[in-house]
Every structure is written in structure tokens, then in C-alpha cells.
Design a binder for these strands. Structure first.
Lengths: 203, 203
DNA sequence: CACTTGTTCTACCAGATGGTAGAGAACCAG
DNA sequence: CTGGTTCTCTACCATCTGGTAGAACAAGTG
């Protein structure tokens, strides 16, 4: 069972970092210290390997994000008081940045899959559906409590997602505007992003 | 000279839509109604073709964005009055959405190149440098006139870029939250995005 | 006419790709 | 020891990849 995990790890790094088409089974095998045929023994084909990588990543990302949210008090709907909406947003942003630093391949894979589209994206959509629904409900609750400005929660979710993912992972765009994405710099970026989001959400 | 243009068009559509690695010279030639060797006659190699596609796209995008900005009064620095910052932002967003509808391959190529990184990204960076500098100066002017909240203009630029590009081009993310990216829907998306940006920038 | 130049083609190649067939080794159970 | 299961390997294959060599053809130009 250990070989299987090594393959998955190498495949995640390659697929998330260089992209599905740019990576060969041979190179994944080389990274794992084995032969290509061993890869094909554990996962029947390159497509099947990609499926396994996606499923694993979706599970890990879901777990990380849920954990980050659950460490903050949830916004129950019978709570007359305004729930601490902002703490929730901040927790998620922190989780995403932690992922961007520690497991950048995972966010890279997510980007890659949204680029490749079907059929890969379907697995992600299915796996993330509860998370998306939860985020939507979170925004709606924030609007009803008056903390978040009223608008289409789905579009607000897309805007927020794009902003967070972009600032956290678009290394080349950062360089293009003269920001070197060092580790120390990441903290500044996160703080600016949180200000940006607070303005955008609270309106 | 006509064949050359047909090749460039087909290559742009393929590279921007499916990605550099996923596209073969044979398929580009097929789309252009010619043989692969004719492609290699006009552009010495696949890499050289990609370079030409990138350069053309950078030029076209620059022209489109500059035209959109110049149709609105520029913010001169000796202008004591607050220049109409918001009109500038709105003009650019409108231009990007027009591109997303009419030439989605161009924005797709831009995404692809930021994903591929060096050496491709260098050409884009070089070509966009004046545009980036102009945008940065625009934001700084907005801050000094009190229209835009004060912060690091480079990071604000990255946040804004990410949000606009995401909302305009991330089709699969839109579908994941239940928004079908139809043409009619695009207008709504743009309006919501502008509200989002106004809140985020004005703060 | 011959000669050059520009363009598109057929023919071909070496290397990489995803995938198949099957041998050999390690292990456990009887 | 024997037989079966699990895993990793070598050997091989059909196909596709980017790229080269050079013929065929047209259009000028002297």
C-alpha cells in the first residue's frame, strides 16, 4: 500500500504543477522510483490515475476547509444576533493561504481541473457540492443579518473565489506587477486580501 | 500572407482553448486546411508558433484595453479635481467582458501562459509592462484623490485582476455554483462584478 | 528560354507516449 | 515442497509527436 501512495503523491505534484498533458507516466514513475508498468498495475490507466488524484485532493481540500470553518462558531439561523461572519471568511482565507504555502500542488490541481473542464471537473463539482452549498448559505445568512451587502450569493461566491485563488496562487501575475512571492511577503498579501474582501463583502 | 494568418488564428483558438501541450501541429494544420509542414514552413517550430501567437494576442489585448481607457477622460495629475476613477474601472471591465464574449481564446491564452510560466510568460510581461504601469499609476491617482482606499497599489491590482479574470472566464467555476454562463447572464455578472469592485476599491 | 524565389506538398525519421503480455520474485497457506 | 496471490519487473507494440529532406509547382525576372 505504500507504493500506491508514493505514486499518488508524485502524480499530484506533477499534474498540479505542470498539468495533465505535460506529464507522462514514465516521468511519474521516475519520480516514484519505480517503473511505468507498476503505475499501470495500481491504476489501470493515466485517466484512472488522474481520477484518483482528483478524488484524493478534493477530499483533502474539503477536510481542510471544513476544519478551518468549524474552529469558528457556526452561524445558526435561529441566532438573532449577527453571527461573526467575518471570522468565518478570515478562517477560510487563512486556510487557503496555508494550503498555498504547504500544498501548492493541490490548489494547482484545482486550477488545472477547472481549465480541463469535463469530464474531470464533474468529479470536483460533485465532491465540492456540499461545501459550495454551505458557503452560499453562509453568505445568505450574512446578508440577512446585515453584515454582508445584499446581492446574488452565487455571483458573490464566484467573485470571492476568484479573488482568493488568484492572490493565493497566481505567482506569475504577482511577478508581473513587481511582487516577489516570498514566504514573508505572503503574510502581507493575505492581510491586503482580507481588507479587500472586507470592503467588497460588507460594501 | 493569408495562410499565415489562418494558421495564427487556428493556433490561437487551440492554444487558448485546449492548452499548449494538448495541441499538436497536425491538429492546427487540419484546422487551417493545410499540412503540418506548411505550418513549419511559416513558423520554424511549435515554440516559434506559440511565440507568434502570444505576441499577436498581447498586441491585440493591449490595443483593446488602451482603446477602452482612452475613450474616457484620462486622470491627469495636474487635475486638482478628483478624476472620474470609476469610469476608468468600468471601461476596462466592459472591455474585458467584451473580449470574454467575442474573443474568449485570447483570455484563455493569457490564462494558459500565466500557468505555463517562463519562458512564455516573459513575453507577456514585457508586452504588458506599460499597461501594468499605467494601471498602477491610475490606482495611485485614485488613492491620492481620495476615491480609492489607500493600500499597496500592486496588490490591489492583483486582486482586481484576479477577480475580473475569474468572473469573466472561469466558466466551470460558474457552473459549479449553479450559474449557467449564457450571453444574457453575462450582463448580470458584469453588473454584480462592478458592484463588487466598487465596494472593494472605494472601501 | 533558363534561373530564381516563394509556397505547399509527399515521404520519412527518431523519440516519446499510453498501454499489453507475460516472466519472475516474494509471500502465505496447505 | 506446492499452489496461489500480490506485486514489480523486462520486453514489446501501435500510435503520435515535432521536425528534416527534398520534390513539385507557380510566378516572376533576365
Amino acid at each position: 500500500m505504500e507504493t500506491r501512495d508514493r505514486i499518488l503523491e508524485a502524480a499530484l505534484a506533477s499534474f498540479g504543477g505542470r498539468g495533465y498533458d505535460a506529464v507522462s507516466l514514465d516521468s511519474i514513475a521516475r519520480d516514484s522510483g519505480i517503473r511505468k508498468q507498476t503505475v499501470l498495475y495500481h491504476f489501470g490507466s493515466k485517466d484512472a490515475l488522474m481520477e484518483a488524484v482528483i478524488d484524493g485532493t478534493v477530499a483533502d481540500l474539503t477536510a481542510a476547509l471544513l476544519a478551518s470553518v468549524e474552529s469558528t462558531p457556526p452561524a445558526t439561523e435561529d441566532d438573532g444576533e449577527s453571527p461573526d461572519v467575518w471570522a468565518g471568511v478570515e478562517a477560510v482565507v487563512r486556510a487557503v493561504f496555508r494550503l498555498a504555502v504547504r500544498r501548492p500542488e493541490m490548489l494547482g490541481l484545482l486550477r488545472e481541473v477547472t481549465r480541463l473542464g469535463p469530464p474531470w471537473i464533474d468529479r470536483v463539482r460533485a465532491g465540492f457540492e456540499p461545501l459550495v452549498e454551505r458557503a452560499r448559505a453562509f453568505l445568505v445568512a450574512g446578508m440577512e443579518s446585515g453584515t454582508i451587502r445584499r446581492c446574488d450569493p452565487r455571483l458573490l461566491l464566484v467573485s470571492t473565489y476568484s479573488t482568493v485563488m488568484g492572490v493565493a496562487t497566481e505567482v506569475e501575475v504577482l511577478r508581473a506587477v513587481g511582487v516577489e512571492p516570498t514566504l514573508r511577503d505572503t503574510v502581507l498579501r493575505r492581510r491586503e486580501l482580507l481588507r479587500f474582501l472586507r470592503s467588497a463583502l460588507v460594501g
